[in-house]
Nucleic acid binder design. Structure first.
Lengths: 113, 113
DNA sequence: GTGATGTGCAACCATCTAGTTGCACACCGA
DNA sequence: TCGGTGTGCAACTAGATGGTTGCACATCAC
């Protein structure tokens, strides 16, 4: 899996059903069929959701006997969080800089060389 | 604006055009028309995107003369980041706990009262 | 072996969404 | 006063998406 860009990562997290899947998997690995038994969605739909999550690295799959169980990858979510925080801070500091400029009226104008 | 849930916040961030808007606004407040001048998208489409971002609190709007300028709210993204990180960590610790349990075979079984 | 269970793949459908165009109206400046 | 610019609202379209059903096939347990 190549590292997905931010919009793709966020798109994977934009569906309530996928959050439900992630939350369940957060309590322990499960197969698609097992998830379909406890959720009001077909096994095939769940399979598609898990594939989306796997593509962005939020879950990993593992063959166990004849079934395929999925494990959540919390570190992936945390690394996304770090990146979002970094960007959010940069926006804030940028606005701060501009606000400071606006609050210095006609003071110390840059000399034209 | 009521606080939006995680899927809704992530959905707002799942579109490349909206990230483009946020990035531009990160360098300074702009109006929808000004954004439309520098992006290959119509002013109306940009207006819809900005409305989506405003609903989840990622931008704020401000009347300036006859135009409406939009400002990015970096703190909103950072607070989302904190929440995602918290969840990611909880998943990791949960898996760790289960892994530890699995690695203690038939040891210290709980007494039945 | 045989039935039950789990998986994979494909076709199909309804709805959401990101984009467009078009028009009406407000307002600023020369 | 009048042209240019900015905004708001509505209608429409193509494609993405989340969901379904159906079927074929592998595999585990009895």
């Amino acid at each position: 899996m190549s590292v997905p860009d931010l919009p793709t990562m966020c798109a994977a997290l934009s569906d309530p059903t996928r959050w439900e899947l992630l939350t369940r998997l957060g309590q322990g690995a499960m197969s698609a069929s097992a998830l379909a038994r406890v959720l009001p969605v077909s096994r095939q739909a769940i399979g598609k959701h898990l594939e989306v999550l796997r593509e962005v690295g939020l879950v990993e799959s593992e063959q166990r006997g004849r079934e395929v169980v999925y494990l959540v990858v919390g570190a992936r979510l945390s690394s996304l969080a770090r990146e979002l925080d970094r960007i959010g801070r940069s926006w804030e500091s940028g606005l701060l800089r501009i606000k400071q400029l606006a609050e210095q009226p006609d003071q110390d104008p840059p000399p034209l060389p």
